[in-house]
């Protein structure tokens, strides 16, 4: 028996190492992501108080949520460090959902008047851009020339669709608390956002589905504004619209 064998055992040793390495990476990521999930849940819980908080008391609430998001920032920083050691899209699906929820809380807080930035001062009804979100979490956004951790456009857009559904709830609850102006702010904002989604050429995927659902949030807010207008409880909504525009 002289010659070659079927296979070089090294092939399988190396495959074995690769699989084990991948499993280890996934476990590390899972642990980080679980911590992030908890931090996101804290911020979400705090934010849910907005539905029972009059506008005058937003600053106190914002302060608390900002602190909770500070915790997210630290964990996302850790995630970024670990994830950047590996091809980004190999593991991206593991954290994408959680990062989306985190972004939603940051967008929400900025909308309420939190996270003042040099480029975009704090204001009720302000939309934190993707770049703003990057600044809040101190991670890159929409990286194209480098394989490292970042926040993607899709994650940001999906986070926006989560946000609109809560805004429509806020429109209703603000009326209950006697704030008849906030629904108008929300109405303008959410309509413009919906118009923005209409600009996209979406494929038949999750983003399409979620962007399509934004119209129901728009409708809910419109109904609130209609009820208020019908009863003469607000200035004419068109005035509020132009106010928002010039403020933009």
């Amino acid at each position: 028996m002289s010659s070659q064998t079927l296979l070089n055992p090294e092939i399988f040793t190396s495959l074995n190492d690769r699989i084990e390495e991948e499993t280890a990476v996934r476990e590390t990521l899972t642990q980080i992501i679980q911590r992030l999930e908890r931090a996101v849940a804290t911020a979400q819980a705090l934010l849910s108080r907005v539905h029972g908080t009059p506008r005058a008391r937003y600053p106190a609430l914002i302060e608390q949520v900002e602190a909770a998001i500070g915790e997210q920032r630290e964990i996302i920083g850790e995630l970024s460090k670990t994830a950047s050691n590996h091809p980004y899209y190999k593991y991206n699906s593991k954290w994408s959902r959680t990062v989306q929820s985190a972004i939603t809380t940051a967008i929400y807080t900025a909308w309420l008047g939190g996270f003042p930035l040099d480029t975009s001062p704090a204001r009720l009804g302000r939309l934190a851009s993707l770049e703003d979100i990057g600044k809040i979490y101190q991670v890159p956004t929409n990286l194209k020339d480098k394989d490292a951790f970042h926040i993607t456009i899709e994650e940001y857009l999906l986070a926006l669709t989560d946000f609109t559904s809560d805004l429509s709830r806020l429109a209703i609850n603000s009326v209950t608390m006697g704030d008849f102006e906030l629904p108008l702010v929300i109405s303008t904002f959410i309509k413009d956002l919906f118009a923005g989604f209409q600009v996209l050429n979406l494929k038949n995927d999750i983003l399409r589905k979620r962007a399509d659902a934004v119209k129901y949030d728009v409708k809910r807010v419109e109904d609130v504004v209609y009820d208020l207008s019908l009863r003469g409880l607000v200035k004419r909504p068109t005035d509020a619209d132009t106010e928002m525009k010039t403020g933009a």
Binding site: L127, L130, I153, L157, A195, G196, V199, L200
Partner: peptide
């Protein structure tokens, strides 16, 4: 054009 039109055009 809504206030976010430009941003969404970039995304598009």
């Amino acid at each position: 054009r809504g206030q976010f039109h430009d941003m969404f055009e970039t995304f598009r």
